[in-house]
Structures are given as structure tokens and as C-alpha cells.
Design a binder for these strands. Structure first.
Length: 446
DNA sequence: GTGTCGTCGCGGACTCATTT
DNA sequence: AAATGAGTCCGCGACGACAC
């Protein structure tokens, strides 16, 4: 599939070879195009002249004029394909292209163009030269050349209307605007040519509002299985597998891998948390992104030292086994929130508050010493947790409840020695958080 | 229908760069 | 050096989606 830039009467066109894709009774086209040109051409709101087309239609249908007028009015007001540009997302895509060695976008940008078909018998250059002033500056031309279909799209703003892929293109645009690198970056286009706006609008609706987002657990699974970088997701993916498959783990047969209860699970099974959920919560214990949070990346040191990474999962197992031995409702996720998502998220936060304290007070800022902690030691630290009543917390949304459960747990655990969580928190922020944070920051420098 | 999960959006805090 | 402001992140609460 070739693409080239050509000039006809001082106007530049992007000439693309296109391939017809027939699906059922209709067809669209795919093309390969240089991103550097496309970013100059795309828009997400329909061009002005389309509205005029609708207006013409109205005058021919006088009887129903009022009806049509209403449609036109709503069409004019409604910014059709314009979604608010999410700047954060655009910047993320820009950085992805800039920094990632394998910065692929293998899926197509879905778009539409307004075009005129030029008959095979005519010379297209002459045709365009003759018509160029009569046609809109954004009009494209469809031609046949050497038995292949091609399209000539004017290299001008708004000649391509994007239905899906706005953020990818905005990201590419940002990349080109902020970089002198002349990289080759081809993108795939799915081109809808010659369809009524109503059809396009329908496609837009289906793509953007009806398409289900990918199950996050599957996404994490794929990243873990196929990415060869030992990044945060990969390691946590391996951890969750280990936690689910290792028979001494408190999470043995508890984790819904791929977000689903496995087929053939017994009645009364204990699959109570999803893999994605657990990864989302645990990532905060290893990610440098959490360094400014009150919930510190308590395992950052072990995460950064490859041969110590296993200590993270060992600690997690010891910690939750301690919880398990103190509270018998760990075994009954059907009736208790403790070993369900919210309970576990709250326990992880307790862990993130506990570790900095013992690290400083008991283990003399020595991460090696923390490794030697036993399940019994943790049980002693968590004494009091067995009396915390969790029944008031079911039946509500998650994020708020997680916080409330955490408060109840902290207030109940004797070691923390506070019957008032907010007092504990302010004390923690003064005495432990700054020291631990500094220590974590130091790890990143080395 | 009920209970739980998971995401969205908001407010506040913090950071960093630029201006005064 | 202080003030201002843009950008970003975090935690919380609300709510829609989904499973049972």
C-alpha cells in the first residue's frame, strides 16, 4: 500500500492506495497513511458545508419542513463528533510514542471523507484542475489507477472526519509539534466513503457508547504474559497467580483470574476478589507513584532489587495468614466483607500504615530485618483486629467503605494505640510519614 | 430485588515553572 | 524572594453495572 504527496494546481493531496473491505452488503476501505500528514488534516467535528447539505434537503421537503428544521437545529447545536479532548490522555499517548521502543498502534483510526468519484475514462489530474474551484476545499477524489483504487485527500485542515481515534491522533500531533525527530510513523485508516452522515453517526454511537471496555483483568493478564519487561504489572500478575495457586497462600483459590470465577467451581466457592482489583490495590505498595501518598509504597525497596522481589509476596502471605488466623470470617466471604474486595483493600492500607511504623521503630530502618518477620510477629501486631465488627459496612459503595473499614481496623488494633483514627493519622503524618517518604525517595535516586 | 464491584468526577493538596 | 497559576495526583463519595 503506497502513499505519496502530490501537487495539483498548487494544492497538495495525499494520494493513498486503498483496499476495499466488503462486509455484508456494504463496504469501507482501509489504507496506510503517514501520521505526519494525517495530523494536519483531521477534525472531529463535521465541516460546515455538511450542514448546508441538510439545509438543501429541507427546502425540497416543504411538508415536513418544520420537522426537518428541528433536526437541523439540533444538529447544529450538537457538536456531532466532538468529544472533549482529554489532555492527560493526549499527553500520555504523546509520551508513549516518544518513550516506548515498541510504540505500536496496530488498530485503525476510523474516519470518513467526502469524495467525488472520477470516472476511469477521464484523466484525474485534468478533472481535478477543472473542478477544484467549484468543489469544497476539503473534498477528496476517488480514482482508479493501474487497476487499483486510490483516493486523493487534500492536505488541508478538516478534510478527514475522525469517528474513532481522536486521542491517538491528538497524541501524534503533540508528538510532532514537540519533537524534531523525523520518525516514520504509519497509521492504519478505516475509511468510510460516501455514506450518509446518519450512518456515520450511528457508527460513532456504536463505537463510543455501546462498545464494552476490555475486562481489565484480561488486559493485565496479557500485559503480564506478553510483556518481557519486568514492570509493575508483570510482577504483580505473577504475584496474583502465586497467591491464587500456592496452597499455603491465604488467597488460595480466592482470586478471580481474568475477572471470572472458573468454570466448574464448587458451590460455596471462595472466589471473592478479582485479579484486576488486587493488582490495582497492590500496585500502590510498589509503585513510585505512591510516594507522595499517605499510603506509602512499602515494598519499593524489594521491588527495585530483583532478587528480593519474592520477599514482597512472602510478606503479603504472612500478613494475610495472620489476619486469617485471627479472624475466622476470613473463611466465609459469602457472609463477611473481610476477605472481599473492600475488606482486602482496607487491610492493604492497614499494612501500608503499619510497615513504616515498625520499620522505623523496630527494625532500625533496615529493610533486611523486616524480611525476618514471622507470621506470629504479625499476629501479635494485629491483636485487637479479631474484635472489630465489620457488619455495618456491607451494602454500600466501595471507595468510601474501604476508608471506613480502615478506620475501624486501625481503631481496633491495639498496636496503633489510638481510639480516634484522625488523631492517629495526624501523628503518623508527623512522626513516620516524612522519614519513610525520604527513605523511599532516596531509593529512587540510587 | 439486593448486595457488591468498579469507575467517574470532584475537591483539595502538592509541585513546578514563570512572573512580579 | 514571593506570588501566581497551570498541571497533576490522591482520596473520597456517588452511582451505574452486574452477578446472584
Amino acid at each position: 500500500m503506497n502513499s505519496q504527496v502530490i501537487k495539483i494546481k498548487d494544492k497538495e493531496f495525499l494520494k493513498l492506495e486503498i483496499e476495499k473491505i466488503i462486509q455484508k452488503d456494504n463496504a469501507f476501505y482501509i489504507a496506510k497513511a503517514p501520521a505526519r500528514e494525517i495530523v494536519k488534516m483531521f477534525t472531529v467535528s463535521p465541516a460546515e458545508y455538511d450542514i448546508k447539505k441538510y439545509s438543501d434537503l429541507v427546502s425540497k421537503n416543504d411538508d415536513e419542513q418544520e420537522y426537518y428544521n428541528k433536526i437541523i437545529d439540533s444538529k447544529k447545536k450538537q457538536v456531532n463528533f466532538q468529544r472533549t479532548k482529554d489532555k492527560t490522555r493526549v499527553n500520555k499517548i504523546r509520551d508513549y510514542i516518544k518513550n516506548n521502543e515498541y510504540a505500536f498502534f496496530p488498530n485503525t483510526i476510523i474516519c470518513t471523507i467526502d469524495s467525488i468519484l472520477i470516472d476511469k475514462t477521464q484523466d484525474y489530474k485534468t478533472f481535478i484542475e477543472n473542478n477544484i474551484n467549484r468543489e469544497s476545499s476539503t473534498t477528496s477524489y476517488l480514482i482508479d489507477e493501474n487497476k487499483t483504487k486510490k483516493v486523493l485527500i487534500p492536505i488541508i485542515e478538516k478534510s478527514i472526519l475522525v469517528i474513532d481515534g481522536q486521542h491517538r491522533l491528538e497524541g501524534l500531533k503533540e508528538f510532532y509539534n514537540n519533537s524534531n525527530e523525523e520518525i516514520q510513523y504509519d497509521i492504519l485508516l478505516s475509511l468510510f466513503i460516501g455514506f450518509d452522515r446518519a450512518i456515520i453517526a450511528q457508527q460513532f454511537y456504536i463505537i463510543n457508547y455501546e462498545q464494552k471496555p476490555v475486562n481489565k483483568s484480561i488486559l493485565y493478564h496479557l500485559m503480564g504474559e506478553f510483556s518481557d519487561e519486568i514492570d509493575e504489572i508483570t510482577i504483580l500478575h505473577n504475584f496474583t497467580r502465586l497467591l491464587n495457586e500456592f496452597d499455603k497462600s491465604p488467597f488460595y483459590n480466592r482470586i478471580k483470574m481474568l475477572g471470572k470465577v472458573p468454570k466448574g467451581a464448587s458451590r460455596g466457592h471462595k472466589y471473592s476478589i478479582s485479579q484486576a482489583f488486587l493488582i490495582d490495590e497492590l500496585i500502590k505498595t510498589i509503585s513510585k507513584k505512591s510516594i507522595n501518598s499517605i499510603y506509602q509504597p512499602i515494598f519499593l525497596y524489594y521491588f527495585l532489587n530483583k532478587n528480593l522481589q519474592i520477599e514482597i509476596v512472602k510478606f503479603i502471605i504472612k500478613f494475610f495468614n495472620a489476619v486469617k488466623s485471627l479472624r475466622n470470617d476470613w473463611e466465609t466471604p459469602q457472609t463477611s466483607i473481610l476477605s472481599k474486595g473492600m475488606g482486602i483493600a482496607a487491610l492493604i492500607r492497614v499494612m501500608q500504615l503499619l510497615v513504616p511504623i515498625i520499620f522505623i521503630d523496630k527494625y532500625e530502618n533496615n529493610p533486611q530485618k523486616l524480611i525476618s518477620i514471622s507470621q506470629k510477629d504479625i499476629e501479635l501486631l494485629l491483636t485487637g483486629i479479631e474484635s472489630v465488627d465489620l457488619s455495618p459496612f456491607s451494602g454500600q459503595g466501595s471507595a468510601g467503605s474501604i476508608s471506613k473499614i480502615k478506620v475501624a481496623l486501625i481503631e481496633g488494633i491495639h498496636f496503633f494505640n489510638y481510639s480516634n483514627y484522625s488523631k492517629f493519622e495526624s501523628e503518623f503524618k508527623i512522626t513516620y510519614l516524612p522519614k519513610f517518604k525520604e527513605w523511599n525517595k532516596l531509593l529512587l535516586k540510587n
